[in-house]
Amino acid sequence: MLYIKCPHCGMRSQNEFSYGGDASVKRPELNKEISDQEWDNFVYNRKSLRGKHWELWQHLSGCRQWIKVQRDTATHEIFNTLKAEEEIN
């Protein structure tokens, strides 16, 4: 079971969180004309990366905040966690 540092609450076990997918995906702006391809990339197309990956988790049974977690998908090592409003760099 992973041990995730919630930027709001501190170290908590994985069973308090739920997974939310790739954190680097940006939703297209509202009312913007975009191609089918762009929309498909947003809704469906994901790289199943091996290695470092920024992903979203929600601290569901804690502060209910969505957070960004940088995790190695192969080793589960967690390098960094950010608040929702903090930018990935």
Binding site: S18, G20, R27, L56, Q58, L60, R64, Q65, W66, A84, E85
Partner: peptide, 13 residues
């Protein structure tokens, strides 16, 4: 609820 929180916290803060 999670869905609403997702959009409020991440997409349209």
């Amino acid at each position: 609820l999670s869905h609403l929180e997702y959009y409020l916290q991440l997409v349209w803060p």
